[in-house]
């Protein structure tokens, strides 16, 4: 702490020489930019460059299996995309998946956060146990839940039968609607903890006194939840929702591993559509057009997010 007392005079002696101090500040700021530059440059190269590349590619006919035939085609790829009913079908399914999975994960995450926020014996165990699924790669989670729903060795069928519930011997992946059940369960298993943790952090910022004064005013805990918790939790809720909505919009690993878009086309999503155009049809021009569309949608969501953060007056959560 001796250092601290020396600090004031040190700064004080600096002030009579404003010129030197200004150049010192300029030097520091130059060093600052130099420190920031590599990270920004790296991100720009890896993320912005592909974005621009996609814009160029999307106006070209470029099919890898037809070498030497690449040429400019204007908006033909975009025209083909918007006239392809499969594109719109996949976009619609993606939207439904976003709404359903994010809603379920939000409700479950909120309940989870409220539970963990309370003091009880198994609190540590719950916190640790929900975090482990979050650390499992999405593709692995999908692979596991696919096997869990296997009629023979999976536990879902075994449990349904043991509990005498309907649905035993059901081939989930052969139903256009039921095939979504394992997909959503796998997605929830992996992602609910993330929402819960964000909401928990939000809950911990709410001062306990507000609840106490509410109780004195005669509010029951249900009323307090609606009147205090939810409004004060709003920023954390928004952050969690936007992050999850965005990653749900780009869902790929789960679909690729679990169903390949089947049965028929009933679980195909827009990221899968794009990947197929790129890596199976090897039609890079068309794939780029779809990628541009997806990027625009993602950036719209990102803009909403940034605006919400601004409203909160800063970036730090």
């Amino acid at each position: 702490m001796a250092a601290k007392t020396q600090l004031a005079p040190a700064l004080g002696t600096g002030s009579p020489q404003p010129k030197r101090r200004r150049s010192y500040m300029a030097a520091r700021s130059r060093v600052g930019y130099l420190l920031v530059l590599p990270a920004v440059a790296a991100l720009a190269a890896i993320a912005i460059y592909p974005l621009v590349y996609n814009l160029v590619l999307s106006t070209r006919f470029d099919v890898l299996t037809e070498p030497g035939t690449g040429h400019f085609t204007g908006l033909a790829n975009y025209k083909q995309m918007v006239t392809d009913p499969n594109f719109w079908g996949d976009l619609g399914r993606t939207g439904i998946f976003m709404v359903v999975s994010v809603t379920l994960e939000f409700v479950a995450g909120l309940i989870l956060a409220l539970i963990v926020h309370r003091q009880f014996k198994a609190r540590g165990l719950v916190r640790a146990s929900i975090l482990i699924p979050w650390a499992i790669p999405t593709a692995v989670s999908a692979l596991l839940w696919k096997m869990f729903f296997d009629i023979r060795s999976g536990f879902v069928d075994f449990a349904l039968k043991a509990l005498h519930l309907p649905g035993s011997q059901l081939v989930w992946f052969n139903s256009p609607t039921l095939a979504w059940v394992p997909i959503i369960l796998s997605d929830m298993w992996k992602n609910t903890p993330f929402i819960a943790l964000l909401l928990l952090a939000g809950l911990q910022t709410i001062p306990q006194e507000i609840y106490e004064s509410a109780r004195i005013d005669g509010a029951n805990s249900w009323q307090a939840f609606w009147a205090i918790t939810l409004p004060l939790l709003r920023p954390a809720i928004m952050v969690a929702l936007i992050f999850r909505t965005l990653s749900a919009m780009l869902v790929f690993d789960t679909i690729f591993v679990m169903t390949g878009g089947g049965p028929g086309q009933s679980t195909e999503v827009v990221a899968y559509y794009d990947w197929y155009k790129y890596m199976v049809s090897l039609n890079f021009g068309f794939g780029a057009a779809v990628a541009v569309a997806i990027t625009v949608l993602a950036l719209i969501l990102a803009a909403i997010y940034v605006r919400l953060l601004r409203q909160r007056g800063g970036f730090m959560a």
Partner: peptide
């Protein structure tokens, strides 16, 4: 703020949209 905003924005870029260009590069 713009720098931090840009870095955040990048994490919003869809992975799938980078696959094609990065593959070609």
């Amino acid at each position: 703020v713009p720098i931090l905003g840009f870095i955040l924005l990048v994490s919003f870029f869809p992975q799938i949209a980078m696959v094609g260009p990065l593959f070609l590069v």
